[in-house]
């Protein structure tokens, strides 16, 4: 019996889809490359004042939950994970970072004194804020660590 012409098209379409879909699925399921880590040094103050626009989202979150009213961005550094390096910041602060986003060891030091070390995991857009460090002028310093999307500056 001669097969219907549409049968040939249908069979071809099914075969093509069967070949293409697993590749697309595999492409999506392949492990993503390690992201960029952004570290922002922020000076927070309970006094009303201007807040840098780059900190608007974080500032809203902190204002709702803490007593700070104004935030000033002092420094921004980025590095690609996995990391194994120490970043210097103003005020003789140093932030040592080692590991991947899923297992990142962070050590905060000031001069020769280690303040804290912690092992964390960073995911998505949820930042890790290390705060409470006096900046020497009555303000409080926050180290804000978050993962940076590739498209962001």
């Amino acid at each position: 019996m001669k097969p219907h012409p549409l049968m040939n098209f249908g069979t071809f379409g099914l075969l093509a889809a069967a070949l293409l879909i697993p590749q697309a699925a595999l492409a999506q399921m392949s492990p993503p490359s390690e992201p960029m880590l952004r570290i922002r040094l922020v000076q927070a103050s309970p006094e009303p004042g201007p807040t840098d626009s780059a900190l608007a989202t974080l500032a809203d979150l902190l204002r709702r939950n803490m007593t700070f009213r104004s935030f000033r961005l002092l420094d921004v550094k980025t590095l690609r994970l996995p990391a194994a390096q120490t970043l210097p910041f103003s005020g003789r602060f140093r932030l040592s970072l080692e590991g991947t986003a899923a297992a990142l060891t962070v050590t905060l030091s000031r001069g020769s004194q280690t303040i804290l070390n912690t092992r964390t995991s960073l995911r998505g857009r949820t930042p890790l804020v290390i705060g409470g460090v006096p900046d020497g002028s009555g303000g409080t310093l926050l180290f804000v660590l978050d993962l940076l999307a590739e498209s962001q500056p």
């Binding site: 979150l61 902190l62 709702r64 070390n117 890790l128 290390i130 705060g131 409470g132």
Partner: peptide, 29 residues
């Protein structure tokens, strides 16, 4: 591990107002 002398240390989760909003994890010394 808080190495430097301090009075207290906290680990806080700051909730967002909306499910789509951002939250934050805070280490406060």
């Amino acid at each position: 591990d808080i190495v430097a002398p301090c009075t207290s240390a906290w680990i806080l989760t700051l909730p967002s107002d909306t499910p789509q909003g951002e939250s934050a994890i805070v280490i406060w010394v």
